[in-house]
Design a protein around this nucleic acid. Structure first.
Lengths: 237, 237
DNA sequence: TAATATTGTCGCAGATTGAGACAATATTAA
DNA sequence: TTAATATTGTCTCAATCTGCGACAATATTA
C-alpha cells in the first residue's frame, strides 16, 4: 500500500452550506500559490466508512460534529481527470511527488452537501491551502475541475429535498424567528414567498415549538422565537 | 496495473426494474455453485466514464441501449467488505486467484436504477453466473452483501422521483392503456389509486398522445391507447 | 399620545384532490 | 336482435389546499 492508507481512485467533495446576511454561502478552500479554489474534500482510509471519512473532513474544516449531511452524487466522468491540476498543487507546496503519485491518478468523487449553523463554524484551512472561507453562492470564484457543477447539483438536490424534509432548519441557530426561517427558504429556492402562506404551512407541520418573544429593540411588534422539535426532520440525521 | 484495466476499489450495482404481470420485478444474477444471488454489477475501466461503464453492463445483461438510468447512492460502509464472499465466487469457478487479488480488496459501489420495457429484454448471465432472471420485488431471494439494502433504497428513490418526473412511462411499451399506466404506478407506490383522479392528473400533464382504441376482445368498452410525448419527461434522459 | 414598522392571524377566491356516479361502449348470452 | 355484463371516459360535488390581501396587535420612537 503506497497510498498512505487511503483508498485509491476514491475521493469525496463537500458542499457546506451556511446562511448569513440573508444569503446562502458555502465553504471554499484556496490552495497555496496557485490561485486555485476548490470545495473541501478528502480521501477515504482503507478501514473507514465512506460516510465517516466525510464527517472526519467536516470536523477538520468546521470544528463541528453531528452535522446534517447528505450524499447526492458520485462524479465519475473522464472529463474531470486532470492530473496536471493536482501536480500544480503539489509543486506549489514544494512537495516532492515521491510517494504521492497515487494522487495523480484518476479519482471518482462522491459528493455530499452539509447544512450547518453559520455561527458555530470556525473555518479552518488544511496544510495545502491558505484559506477556508465563506462565499455567497452568487459570488463564487472560479472553481477547479468540475467543482462548479458539483455546487449546482448540490443546490438542485437541496431544493428538491426542501419540500419533503424540513431541512432548512439546520441552517439556523437553535432559536430563530419565523422571518429568519422564511429567509432561509427564500435563499435556497431563489424566490420570494408569501409571508402568511409560509407561516401557515410551516406551523401546520407541527414540528416547531414556540418560545418567548424576542425583543430586538426595533420599533415593532416582537416576533416569537421558535425551536425545532425532532420527528422525521431531526436536526441530526 | 494488475487489475485488468479496471479501477480498484470502485464497483457499480444496478437495480433493473421491469413491469410484468402487474408486478414490479428486477433482474437478479445467480452465481455458479454458490447459491449466491446478486444484483448485476461490474467495474469501471481506467479510461471510461462511470456512467458509460454502467451502460456497458446494462447492454450486456439486457441487450438494450438507451436505457432510462439514474444514479442514486454510493455504498461505502466497511460492513459491506467481505472478501470471503468474492473468494467463494472465484473458487466456485475454478478461477485461480492469480492476477485477481484486486477483486478481494475493498470496494465502494455506486448504485443505479434502470427502468426498461420488460418485453424488450433478453436477460443474459455473465461468465460467473448460471442465470440472470426476473424476480418480483416481493419474492426476492436472499441477496449477498448489502444488495437487499440497495434494492430498498432504489425503490425508495424511484418512489420519490415518481411524483416529480413522469418516469413510470419507461416501464411500458410504446403504446399502452391508461389502466396499464395506473398499474405501473400502483406497483411502484405499493398502493391503490383512484381511477378517475389518476386519469385526470396524468392527462392534465399534457404529455400523452391519444391513439386509436385497443380492442382486446374483452366484453367491455375498448380503452384508448396512449403514447408518450417528449418534453422534460423524455424516455431517454 | 400619535406615528411607524412588523407580526400573528383571518377570510376569501381560485385551484387541486378524493370519491362516487353515470352514460357510452364491446362482447357474450339469451 | 336484444339484454346482460364489465370497463372505460368523464363529470360533479364536497373537502382541502394555496395565493394573496387585510386587519388588529404590539414595540419603539417622535
Amino acid at each position: 500500500m503506497d497510498s498512505k492508507g487511503y483508498l485509491k481512485h476514491i475521493a469525496y467533495d463537500s458542499v457546506i452550506f451556511g446562511f448569513s446576511g440573508e444569503k446562502l454561502k458555502i465553504l471554499i478552500m484556496k490552495y497555496h500559490n496557485t490561485g486555485l479554489f476548490a470545495l473541501p474534500g478528502g480521501f477515504v482510509k482503507h478501514d473507514e466508512d465512506l460516510n465517516d471519512a466525510v464527517r472526519r473532513g467536516l470536523k477538520e474544516r468546521t470544528g463541528l460534529d453531528d452535522i446534517y449531511l447528505e450524499q447526492f452524487y458520485a462524479f465519475g466522468s473522464m472529463a474531470r481527470y486532470k492530473p496536471e491540476v493536482m501536480e500544480a498543487i503539489m509543486k506549489a507546496n514544494n512537495q516532492t511527488l515521491e510517494g504521492y503519485s497515487w494522487l495523480l491518478d484518476r479519482f471518482i468523487s462522491v459528493a455530499y452537501y452539509a447544512l450547518i449553523n453559520y455561527e458555530d463554524v470556525v473555518p479552518t484551512p488544511d496544510a495545502l491551502s491558505d484559506s477556508c472561507d465563506w462565499y455567497a453562492l452568487d459570488e463564487l470564484p472560479n472553481l477547479m475541475l468540475d467543482h462548479s457543477i458539483i455546487v449546482t447539483k448540490a443546490l438542485q438536490t437541496l431544493r428538491d429535498n426542501l419540500e419533503r424534509k424540513l431541512v432548512g432548519i439546520n441552517l439556523l441557530p437553535t432559536l430563530f424567528t419565523m422571518k429568519e426561517l422564511q429567509q432561509v427558504y427564500e435563499a435556497i429556492l431563489g424566490e420570494k414567498l408569501h409571508r402568511g402562506t409560509f407561516q401557515r404551512k410551516v406551523l401546520s407541520m407541527g414540528i416547531l415549538k414556540r418560545h418567548e418573544k424576542h425583543f430586538s429593540g426595533a420599533a415593532n411588534k416582537a416576533p416569537f422565537l421558535y425551536s425545532f422539535e425532532g420527528s422525521p426532520y431531526a436536526r441530526k440525521l
